[in-house]
């Protein structure tokens, strides 16, 4: 076969390839890349979609950082939420995973049952928990009353509303995280435990000196994913509290949503979106540079 012909085929194949990928390419450029790039520009503008953007330099950023009460409130709320929820969910998933990681009869069914709640959509979940948190008829406060403990008004109280939304997280500890932990736990060589046991190590020492170091990579990955997810918390607050009471559940993305789709203040909303992106990136980079370097990966020199 001649060189010339082969070149032609390649070109033709390339053309075909691009042609078949065209719908995706159009979507990627038209609906993702261009809007993302434009949003950088809009973050320096006053822009409400209906009128042309008005360039105002760093004004949106200045307003958010120095003037807006809601912005810092939402930053604090989101930070608080993340700090409470990440440990709860990671430790919870790990405990659950170690409970169902051992091979025994019916374990598949047990895993399925623990996995099931995580299939429930965020919307349905919020509605169910709204009922559970009802201060007088809710399951939680009625249960507490049986124990003689007066329950707080949960979502109706600025002191308890964030904790209430964090607690909802236990609903999903049996989801994808548990599965990844099970895989991680099963990958730890048995002989490590056996020799530790011979040396007389109890469960605590085995956990601290074997399980956690061996799970390092998995733990690290899940923690980062969880932090990023927490930064984006939205559905629960949007459906259950609309940011109240007293803005105690006004999370970052909720404030962003209000700015964008209630006030049509796309400039401020774009600025907020980019700051969230930078913050997420910064947290991830810092974690990789500090914690990430100390992690032991199996099979790496």
């Amino acid at each position: 076969m001649s060189r010339h012909a082969s070149g032609r085929f390649e070109r033709q194949e390339n053309r075909l390839g691009y042609l078949f990928a065209a719908p995706w390419l159009v979507g990627f450029f038209g609906f993702t890349l261009i809007p993302v790039v434009l949003s950088v520009y809009y973050s320096f503008c006053r822009y409400d979609v209906l009128r042309p953007p008005m360039y105002i330099g760093l004004e949106n950023y200045r307003y958010l950082l120095t003037e807006s009460g809601n912005f810092w409130k939402s930053v604090w709320n989101t930070f608080y939420f993340t700090a409470l929820r990440v440990p709860l969910v990671i430790v919870g998933s790990l405990l659950l995973a170690s409970l169902v990681s051992k091979p025994m009869k019916g374990i598949g069914i047990a895993r399925t049952i623990y996995y099931m709640p995580s299939i429930v959509s965020g919307v349905a979940l919020s509605v169910i928990w709204l009922w559970m948190y009802n201060p007088s008829h809710g399951l939680i406060n009625q249960g507490l009353a049986l124990l003689g403990v007066p329950g707080p008004p949960w979502l109706e109280s600025p002191e308890w509303s964030k904790e209430a939304i964090v607690l909802m997280g236990i609903w999903s500890i049996g989801g994808g995280r548990m599965i990844i932990f099970i895989a991680g736990l099963n990958a730890i060589p048995r002989h490590l435990y056996e020799s530790a046991e011979l040396d007389g190590a109890g469960w605590w020492h085995r956990l601290v000196h074997i399980t956690i170091p061996q799970l390092g990579g998995v733990l690290f990955l899940l923690t980062i994913v969880e932090i990023v997810t927490c930064f984006q918390v939205f559905t629960e607050a949007y459906l259950m509290t609309r940011g109240g009471p007293e803005n105690s559940t006004l999370f970052y993305n909720l404030e962003l949503y209000f700015k964008a789709f209630q006030d049509y203040d796309m400039g401020v909303a774009s600025a907020m979106a980019w700051m969230l992106f930078v913050a997420t990136l910064a947290v991830t980079v810092v974690l990789f540079q500090t914690v990430g370097r100390r992690i032991h990966y199996e099979g790496r020199n």
Partner: peptide, 12 residues
């Protein structure tokens, strides 16, 4: 105040 907030929250 507190009793009222609890009462209001119980309404659906």
């Amino acid at each position: 105040r507190d009793a009222l907030i609890r009462k209001r929250a119980s309404f659906g």
